[in-house]
Each structure stands twice: as C-alpha cells, then as structure tokens.
Write a protein that binds this DNA or RNA. Sequence first.
RNA 1: GCCCAUGUGGCGGAAUUGGUAGACGCAGCAGACUCAAAAUCUGCCAUUCGCAAGGGUGUGAAGGUUCGAUUCCUUUCGUGGGCACCA
Length: 979
Amino acid sequence: MEYDFRKIEQEWQVRWKLNKTYKVFNDAAKPKYYVLDMFPYPSGAGLHVGHPLGYIASDIYSRYKRLKGFNVLHPMGYDSFGLPAEQYALETGQHPAVTTEKNIATFRGQLDKIGFCYDWDRAIKTSDASYYKWTQWIFLQIFDSWFNRITNRAERIAGLVKIFETEGNLQHACPGDKVQIFAAQEWNNLDEKTKQEILMDYRLTFSAYGEVNWCEALGTVLANDEVVNGVSERGGHPVEKKKMRQWYLRITEYADRLLEGLERIEFSDAMKEMQKNWIGKSQGAEMDFAIRDHDQLLRVYTTRPDTIFGVDFMVVAPEHELVKQITTAAQKREIDNYLTYVKSRSERERLAEVKQITGCFTGAYAINPFDGREIPIWIAEYVLAGYGTGAIMAVPCGDQRDFGFARHFNIPITNIIGSYFNGEEANATKEAILQNSGFLNGLLMKDAISVAVNKIEELRIGTRKVNFRMRDAGFSRQRYWGEPFPVIWQDGVAIPLDAVELPLELPHVDKYGPGPNGEGPLANIEDWVNLIPNASPKERGTGEVKRETSTMPGYAGSSWYFLRYMDPENTQSFCDRKASDYWGQVDIYIGGTEHAVGHLLYSRMWTKILFDLGYIGHDEPFKKLVNQGMIQGSSRYMYRVSPVIITADGFDQALLPYIFISKSIADKLELEDKLAYENTMKFAERSLADVYGDWVITITGISILKTHVDVNFVDGLELDIDQFKKWRNGEYANAKFINEDDGTYICGVETEKMSKSKYNTVNPDILVDKYGADTFRMYEMFLGPVEQSKPWDTKGIEGVHRFLRKLWRLFYDEGKGKLWNENKATDAELKVLHRSIKKIEEDTERFSFNTAVSTFMICVNELADLKCNKKEVLENVLILLTPYAPHIAEELWNRLGNSNSILDAAYPVFDGKYLVESSKEYPISINGKVRANINLALSLEQAEVEKIVLENEVVQKWLDGREPKKIIYVKNKMVNVVI
RNA sequence: GCCCAUGUGGCGGAAUUGGUAGACGCAGCAGACUCAAAAUCUGCCAUUCGCAAGGGUGUGAAGGUUCGAUUCCUUUCGUGGGCACCA
C-alpha cells in the first residue's frame, strides 16, 4: 500500500468541498481569529511559485488556530479593477470584465489545487457592482466629512456648516487654502457656489488641480510605470507635466493619527520606519524673506533656523508662482529654457540626480532680515513645489546638496561652523558652536534652533511649524477600468449622488482609448456623461450637468475589503456593525513589503474615517503584519555565438545557424583564451559551411550573446538539448553546440525577478501534479523563512517528498501492508513526540515554518529509527502535521479509524515530564574555543564544576601547569576556562 | 540619490535571549540490496596542514566591545524591495 498522493488529494478536496469543511459562521461561541492574505490582482499570466508563498503560510496558521479552538476567518477574493486588464483591452479590444473573469477562473483553479482552506462563499471582487456600490458609498461618506483638528477626528460637513454659520472659520483653519479666513457673517453672505468651493477645501475627499504625466501623442495621462526615461513606454513619445483637475484623499489631515497608531500595532520596525519616513513629520519654521525691488515675500520652510546666517542662496521650485514675477529681463531666456527642461523630468529623476547639478539664477535677490545680506534666488529641479513652501534657504556649509550646488555655480560659501567645516564637503552637525552668526554667535547649534525661532516669531517674520513630507493622495485616474465616481458636476460644483442611486454602474464602452482633453474613456459616452437637469432625485438646477468621468484608483477597493469579508452578502450596508464588532481587527495580515506605504497607509486611513464616523468599532485595521519575502527567479543563460561575417551577394541571413557554447567555453572566451577562441572560430566556420555549402564565407570574429533559456528544461545547470530543440516551435531545431568535455551543455545562472520574459517562472501546477499539494506546500515553507526573499530552485523538492513517503511508511508498508498498531508507547517514543510538539508549536506561533518542517523530518527520522508504528504516537504527529500537509494527515487520520475531520481534532498538549534530563554534555572551552566535552549533572554548582573541569585531561594539557584566570560556568549552556 | 531589508559550505538554510557555527534538506562521494534500474537503507561531506592524534582558518570586508560575537557597535562593499498613477 503506497502513498498515492494524487488519489488522496483529489478525494479529500472533493469531500471537504461537499462537507463545507471550511465554511465559517459569524457566531461568537468560539473566540474569533482573523487571518488575511493581501488582496491579489488576478493577473493574466497566472500564478508562479512565488505567489502562493504567503497563502501557504496563512493557510498553515489558519488551520493551526482552528485546531487550537478558534473560529477562524480566512477569506480570499480579487482586487479585480486595474490597469493591466485595461491595457490588454486597448491592445485586443476584449472587455476587461471578460478577461478579468477568465483570469479569476485560472487563478482559482490554481489555488484550489494547493488545498487552501478559504471559505469561498465569502469571496469578493472589487469590480462587482455589488461590491463597488459600497466603495462608492464610503467615498460619499468621506466626501461628506472634514477633519476637526480640535477633536482630532473626522466629522460631518453639516456640522462644519453650522460652525461657519455661527462662528466662521477662525477656530478651524482651512487645510486646502490657508489664507481663507472669514467670520460667521461673511460666510452667511456668501453665495452657494463660493460656499461649496470653501467646503471643498475642507472635505476629506476633494477635487483640485494637480500635475499628471501627460503624453500629447497618446492623448492620455500615463502612470509612472508607463513612463521610462521621460518618454512613454508605448511608442516612446515625449511626456510632460500637465495640470488637470483631480480627486484627492486628504490623508495629510490624518498624518498624526497614522503616526500615533503605529505605536499600537505589531508591524515590523522596518515597516513602521518606512511609514514614518513616508509621513515625514518634521519640526521647523516657516519664514518670509523680503525680495529686493518687489512687494512679494519669499516664504521658505526650514528645519534648521539656526543656520540662518549661513544662507548663501535661495532655491525655489521651478513651478513656484513667484518665479515668473521675480525673474529679471536679463535672465528670462535662461529661466524659460530651464523651465522647459524641468517639465520633461519626472519627479524621481529630479530628486535622484546628483551627478549632474542643474539650476538657473532668476536675477532676483532676497534680503536676510538679520544682517541685510542680499541672497541670490535660484530655481533648481531638486526643490519640488509640493514640499513645504516650495522654497528653501540654502546653507552650503551644512547641507551637501546645497554645497554641491554652490560649488557648481561658484556661489561663495559662508562658514558658520568653524572647524566643523573643512571646505571639501558640507557637515550637517548640530554640535558646532555658531560663528559669523550675529545674535546666535557662540551658541551650540541644537540650542540655537529655538532661540532663532523665538526671534523670528518675535519679529513677526515667521512661525514655528510642523511639516509633513506626505502629500494628499491622488484619488482619480483618467481610466476606464475602475469605480466611477458617484459625483455630478454642475456649474463647477461637485454634487454627490444620493445613496439610493448607488451603485453607479460602469457603463459599457466600445473603445478604451482616452476621451477628449485627456479625460478618461468614459468621457466618450456622451449620453452617459451629459445629464438632463432635474432628471434625478436631487434638484440639480438648470446649468450644464455632467458626470465625473474619472474613475477611482486601484487602492480604493482594497482600502476596505477586509471589512466586506465579514459580511459579504449584505445589501443594506457595507458590513453590519455586529459582524465587524465580532471579527474586529485582522489578527494576522500576510503580504509583501511592496505595499508598505501605499495600501497599508490608505487602508489605515479609511479604517480611521469609518471609525470616526461610527461605522466600525476599531481604528486600526491590522493588528499584526507579517511580511513575506519575494521568491526570486533563478534564470538560466545560454551563450550564443554570433560570427562576424564578410558577405557576398545573395547571402541569406535567415539561414544563419544558431551556435551555442557551453558555460566553461564562454568563461574561457571571456578570459581571452586563445585556444578556445580558435576552436570556436573553426566550429563556426564549419557550421556555416554546412549551411551555405559553396559560398565562400570569411569569419572575421565572433561575439558572444547571453540569452535566457527556459528553466523548465534545464536540469540543475545541464540543458536538456532535445527539449530545447523543440522550444518555440522548433526555432532551435538545427542549433549547434560546443559542449563540455563530457558532452553536456552547461548553462549560466543568475538570480533575478521571476517573470515570463526571463523564462524563469515555474508553474505550481506542474509541481503539484508531479509531487502533490502536500509536498509543494511543505517545500515552499522549507525553502527558508517566510519573511526572507530567496531564489526558487525546484531541486530540493525531492527531499520533502521523500519525507512524506517515509511518514507514510510508518503506517503502511508496500509489501506487508498495515504497520500501525495500538501498542503502548515507550518513554523514548514519547520523548520524541513531545519534543516535536513543543518545537512545532513554538515555530508555528512565530511563523518559523521552515524550522517546523525540519522538526517534522527529524521526528519522522527518529520514529523510524525507533521502529515506532504506534497509533498513540502517530495520531498526534498527524494532528501536528495537519496545517502543513492537510491531505495526507486527513487520509491517515481516517485510516486510523477516525470518522470526524482531523481539523476538528484537539491540538496535542505538550508535557515537559517526558523531556526532563538530569545531566548534560557540556562543551568546555579554553579561551572561548571548545576543546572538550564533559557530561555534568545539571544540579552542579560553580565550585563543583570548576573542580571537575580542572581535573580533565584536555584542560590540564591546555593549562600546561598555569592557573586559570577565571572559569565561567553558565548552567545548561557551557563552561569557559580563561587562561 | 533617499528609505528599508539582506549577505553563513557546491546550493536552500539552522543556530529563538551574546554561549559547541553548519541542524534539516538538496547535490556529491563510497557501500548494501538488485540480473539491472528505480525505490530503500548505511556511511562520508566548511576549508586547510597532518598517516593519525591533533592543530590553523572560517558567518561579505575592515575595525571595536566581551571570558566568549553569525548575534551588539562603527566604517565599508555587494544584492533585493519601495520612492506617491503597477497592484
């Protein structure tokens, strides 16, 4: 009776489905536990072995928690809106809904083979109207909210209107327009449109103008992804910045709450660090500089007001509105040229560029209010309009980028930090005593900061200011395949749809190309966009009425999906409060670090808003986050020889034969090995002669081209030449090879991202077919820690498969049949069992699945050595194994005579009494190096140990008659003799 | 460029709190079983010197703290991820 994994796995998958083994109910009898995987986008390429890594980890943890007596919610669904499907639609004309559905079916099929315990009845798709109805509904709630900085939470707009009507906005500075200040009476006298415009500056989702990547040739807005080196990825057309009306999430209002919340959740320090840096809270000062010959003031933000006397120039963002006004006639041309250059640059490029310093002098001068010095005002791409005030005061002796700039443009540098500045590079210290610094002279820099700010405030030329690097999040896309905004525009005022009008369904389009003026494809559907006034439930007046034609970004649907799983079929609300109160936070969230600052910040923000508005009872969505590493591809390379040929008339390039040389020969050529070169040349000549016959062909040289070859027909490093010849419809059928001496072709290796184009993807289906899901699951875990990135190599999978077969052989023998019995277990057997229970439980708890798999192997090896076939022991091993290899565990559990599912068994309880030891083999070190081992009773104290150790032959030899300086004895660890 | 992670045998990795570096597995080598192969089992397997006993070296590199460092600190190099419209 052998381990027939194909039959076992298929049978159990069917039975689990029929018995609804994974169905989860929202009942409170058991303690709840919520395990969540990051929302996948169903890509057309299908799964490769890297994708299920996190899913297997969460599946193991879910099953483990269930065995431990929890009611476990472990759902899966699809983040099914997104750019790739739309891109595919543009290319093939197929509707994204159709291709997405197809991709989902593939995805589901692949997941099912691996035997996950998802409750598929709770599956959701963000592109389903029944789902995005609620995404739109939440959008409307956010639209109807503002952030009250006094109560520190989101509140309804109606409340804000009341405040304006009674006290104006004196208590509530406008986040969108800082100069907007009015009293109650002024507010009451405003017309409706102006009122709405002001309210827009408070709303937590709002519409305003922002810059996008505009590609004139394609007539469309491009994602950063689609812009490569300043031109469009498709077609290579120029891309420039363009201002367009956009929707935003006012996430900056939540900056402090997002920072504070980090204290209460279990994310890795690295993850928290990334979010903190993204939010980028800094303390500093804003101050105004007068500009020579102008009335306007130049406002800068600085975190180092102590360096005010070291300011040698100002740098203003090229987009800054003052630039046009202050540029002198003499500099105008140069500035215009520079502005054109900057327009073509992406933000990333602007910030990353350090080698090539660019900038341009405006001709204007700011006045230092403390010493009256005239400071030249420059513009440079490294200052962005969106950060701070869009202008900085440059202190070359203290800031490296300012220093480089000053050097490059020959701007004289003032040293205010004495010997701390060496003239060769800037020094950002806060420890220097200030010099050349007027009233700050003699002060330590870190003390001078507040002295300087106080003075600035006293002179009323600036204020203390907390600044955030984070910006409001762009929330609209000029695309088709996303949630339509439930908003109508009338006379420039955005009017939200009524909740009863939701969902606003995505209309069908025939073409996916952009609309007019860079609008999204929806703008092309005139009868959808243009509405008849007064036709809807709300009074809409008589003006021009149009729908918003942008759609929401990918992160809209994924910012709240974890709530929908709790109550997926609810038609009355996005999630019943009872359900969200029961399930609460996601207890464990597993996913990649690539979401560190996008999804993980947006979903935290949405949760906080829903909490503030009273729809849910918790304000952090994820209690604990585990980051899974990436599985990288291990690419294989072939070395192709291209002969350089002098051709004659009528030479047919198409006949050129493929010639490949094995790795060691390529290596030799690389080292300019003469013999290898000549041999290769001769080989190439002969190969050409075979093809071209009589043609006289002279080869003048060869070049080597490294090309990817599909890893699926390379065994280790050795190419399967027959398979290779069949690749790509026989393109290489006549390829010629120079092999190694033993006749094999050896490929080169490199680790890189797993992707189709690199031919290094490995499909899990093939492995599951060949070895079974249980083997596949355990092997993925065995590869290494979940958190770590590692290259995939299929080779080792045999070892895990052998382990499962060995486990099977503890129960059944191919020849003898049933081996398991009901005999009483010995102490030695129980010791193996309990040691395994302890280690596997600990390892599973701390997500150290790779070491748990090792422990299973050790356990089975030891039980096999002990010839233990006892049900008493094996039954417990099966329960331990269930989370990792559910099919084989269930099958053997069943064969042991159990009628219930092993998932409803009780997890074995560790009992320390089987592990008690009275002595230990201690390593004895001399000066930290182990020289001997002595078996010592654990009860011994320092003095007794010293005596025994000093009597030891090896120790005496090393002492060589000397007295030891010290003997360190750490109970249950080691002994170190210091000489 | 900035932020984060990471670096240990031929390979994936282990060493959980500063305490025997290399568990477990792959690959490799030798052997048993077999007509043979597969499967299975046994042994060896960081490197170097040595017949051996035993010794030297060794966790990317260079320093440091410590009786003792893969683990802590400083500097530095390589690789991977993110950087606001991929999801």
